[in-house]
Design a protein around this nucleic acid. Structure first.
Lengths: 166, 166
DNA sequence: CGCGAATGCGCAATATTCTTGCGGTTCTTG
DNA sequence: CAAGAACCGCAAGAATATTGCGCATTCGCG
């Protein structure tokens, strides 16, 4: 079902808006080769059907004084669904935790955190995260730098897949 | 220096655009309590000064048939700057790798990857990633689900910091 | 074949937004 | 206290978004 109802123009629209979410509809229409009205209708449809979940400004944390990013690997004592949900809920309440992914394998969760400085992160780590109920262990790694940060979908792979089907 | 030149309105603008990057300028102006022209001027300034790096549509990978997300922890043989850069460059060429973060500690890099299915990810893992030069070991974990995914800045923390300074 | 029905395009018109130029006000500073 | 800088809001013109409508192509099916 997913991807079935999208033609090439739709995929071009997604690629363009993924690259620049504030592109005007006129410019977008020009790039994908149709006129503005049908282009806008396609965008609306993509939004309604969940292909586009939203639009967000990419704000630089460092410019705002959040100088440290950290990955935290969390192991829980109990992995019952109730406990998993409880931990997720707790993460939702921690502003420093920006992403929370449940994993398979030894580690139960990986968290991406930001903080103004190392000191405040340590305070959060020892005072909140490690101290939280059901948390067995936490391993943290500072992010030195990041070479690639493109959330979303690799459209070149998508096109390769579709070509293979045809 | 970072954050120094931003007043409360600027921070409100950043928060609003982080939440909804396609908000019209008039709506944004209304929410932050000023008229449209100065609001637009502020946004332009925030963009130029790097507080806003860009705008992106949040495209749902699953809807497009990318059903698996994976975190890969990579260790290299050599951590010389040349080798680190070389690995980063290689990551840039892999479409399935969406994020590449260099870490301190035992693991040198964590990669966030997506793939249409487990089979194609395995093909990438064994055929590309593990086989790459200088890669010592790779540990992967499938993402079961994610409870939180809000890249960016926690503005409530930011305001707490500023309040502390005052 | 051939006839609806459905889909999707583009044109045109209106509504909304963006963008710029221009004073006016407040705050800083010497 | 005066000159200058910074920033606001108003107003107008340009650009964009949005809607309604008619037409072409495609598809399903008798």
């Amino acid at each position: 079902m997913p991807g079935a109802k999208l033609d090439e123009i739709d995929r071009m629209i997604l690629a363009e808006l993924q690259a620049d979410g504030r592109m005007t509809n006129v410019e977008l229409a020009r790039r994908v080769g149709i006129s503005a009205p049908p282009c806008l209708r396609r965008v609306r449809t993509l939004e309604e059907q969940g292909y586009i979940r939203g639009y967000h400004a990419d704000v630089d944390p460092r410019e705002l004084g959040f100088d440290v990013s950290v990955f935290a690997m969390v192991r829980l004592v109990s992995q019952s669904e109730a406990e998993l949900s409880a931990f997720e809920a707790r993460c939702g309440g921690w502003p420093l935790v920006r992403e929370c992914h449940m994993l398979n394998g030894e580690v139960d969760f990986v968290l991406k955190c930001v903080a103004p400085d190392l000191r405040s992160f340590q305070a959060f780590l020892t005072g909140e995260l490690t101290a939280a109920p059901n948390v067995a262990s936490v391993k943290t790694s500072l992010v030195i730098r990041n070479a690639k940060a493109e959330p979303g979908v690799p459209f070149d792979v998508l096109e390769a897949r579709l070509a293979r089907k045809a």
